[in-house]
Every structure is written in structure tokens, then in C-alpha cells.
Design a protein around this nucleic acid. Sequence first.
DNA 1: TGTTTTATTGATAAGAATTATTATATTATA
DNA 2: TATAATATAATAATTCTTATCAATAAAACA
Lengths: 151, 151
Amino acid sequence: MEHRIDRIKKQLHAQSYKLTPQREATVRVLLEREEDHLSAEDVYLLVKEKSPEIGLATVYRTLELLSELKIVDKINFGDGVSRYDLRKEGAEHFHHHLVCIECGSVEEIIDDLLEDVERIVEKDWGFRVKDHRLTFHGVCKQCQDVAVKTK
Amino acid sequence: MEHRIDRIKKQLHAQSYKLTPQREATVRVLLEREEDHLSAEDVYLLVKEKSPEIGLATVYRTLELLSELKIVDKINFGDGVSRYDLRKEGAEHFHHHLVCIECGSVEEIIDDLLEDVERIVEKDWGFRVKDHRLTFHGVCKQCQDVAVKTK
DNA sequence: TGTTTTATTGATAAGAATTATTATATTATA
DNA sequence: TATAATATAATAATTCTTATCAATAAAACA
């Protein structure tokens, strides 16, 4: 944890931003809840538990900043709010998501499954790929099992 | 054009919705600007040119309805507005996008490049894929050419 | 056909998410 | 330490979208 905070601190410094206490508190929440996909409001409420004096606008600003520096990815699952997701350490690409249309759960896939596809895009469309985002919508294993049982 | 309107009319009727003049006007705009990725506001302004009496709420309602019936896909490129994109005729899946980070242009890829990837997801994660959305971020051909010239 | 029900619409209010503003506080720098 | 630059909290303002509601149009039915 401390190691990753340090890394992020350096990334900020490299662009002459400071890791203020508020920013650190925000990053800590993101690290602690790495598996989740928190909205700005979610992050705000969690940060507030430990740093009650923080303001919502600061959280928004911090998330925006982290997003610009590619420390977090801003994603949107179509529910009206942006969600913020830490990049895996050293990950060059965004990771993928499996969104269950039954229960709404979101699983992550870290594997880069798109190397072949990217090659095709670069070759056939002349498009130089820098990043990608891939989301599958469908039914997760749990919901499939439930469906079988209740038959 | 008329053929596609007819098809959409049938899809609406199948769910006992009517193709009202307002809905038809909205669909016509979507068909005319099929290559674009219009926001609700964009659609509203374009529909208004030919049917000045239409209300913004009706356009939102129509787009929502078309979205539910999978006639259009509601997409989000992270600029704060939802955009609406007609599905290609008979397309089972969402098509993909190439978003240029230099000029902001959005190209479409109709090919289903993900068959292999979907097989892996179904097999390794037990996730039954119903749909997917894939967006590549990078530099389009035009911007690459410009970059070379201005060197 | 006339009447009743239902669906749809337009105008606008309400809501939610996000951004802008402003005064204050903190930090860095001369 | 004084001064300038950054960052912050509180909150106002904005933007996008949805809900409400009265009016209208269409459909169903007697």
C-alpha cells in the first residue's frame, strides 16, 4: 500500500502536483476499495469517514486529476454516474469488465485479450491504438446457476 | 430508407408501440445522420428543423424507447452526454468505435472482431455474453499523416 | 357514429451529477 | 518573514436528463 502511494506521489510530482492530505486520503480509499467501481459520491462518503472536513468538489477535482494522469480510469456503465477505477500497477492498458445484466455485478478481467484485435485495427484501419476499453454485457456465473436451480 | 423505417415500424408494433409522426421524424434524423454520434440535443435540433413543434422531452422519450428495443445503442464517450447510434440492420452486436485522441473523430468498425475473445470469456469466466462494447483510443490515420508532414 | 379509454405529446418543473466561483488556508519561494 | 502560487471548502450555478401534468390525439368499444 505505502509503496503504491509513493509511486502515485512520484507521478504527481513529475507533473508538479502535490500529494496533499486530501489527495492522499482519496487515493487511499481507491486503493482500499480497488475491486469496486466507486462513483465520485461513493469516494466522497468513504473519504469523509476518515477525513470529515473534505469537500465534494475536492474529491471531484482529485479524481479528475488522477484521471488525467492516467492513474485512474474514468468509466461509465450507463447508470448516469462516472466511476473511477485504479489502473493496475504498471498496466499499460485499461482492463476489461463483465457486467451482469441480471444482478448488476461487475467483474474485472486483467488479461489483455485484445492483442490480435489491435493488430487488425492498426493494419486494416491505420489507427494507432493507445488504449482500449472493452465491456461485456451478459449473465454472470452466479445468476446462471440460480436460473438453473429455480427451474 | 423507407425500407428501414418500415422495419423499425414493425419492431415497434411487435411491442405494441406506435410509430407516431414524432417518432418517425426522430428515426429519420437518425437514419440521415447514421455516421454521426448525435446527442439528444443534436437530435432535437435536427428534428426541429422539419418538425418545429416537437418537444425535447419527446425526443428523449423516443431515444429511450428505441434504446430499450435495441434499435439504437446509447453510448458514452466520456464527454458528459449520451449519444445515440442506430444498430446496423440485423446486427446482433454493438459495433466498435475508434476514437481519435487528437482530433476527436469517431470511426466505426462493423466487423465482429471479438468472436475469439468471447469464446475465452465464456469458457474461462463462465460468463454468458449477450453484448459487448469496445472502444479504441488512439490516433487516426489523418492525424498521423499530419504529424508526419509537420515534422 | 358518439363516447370512453388509453397512449402520446409539449411545456416546464424537478432532480441529479458535475463544474465554476470565491474567500480562505496552505505551501513554496524570494 | 513577506509574497506569490496552489489547493481547499462551501456553495452557487450549470448541464443533462427525468418526472409531472394538462392537453391532445388515437384506438377501442358500445
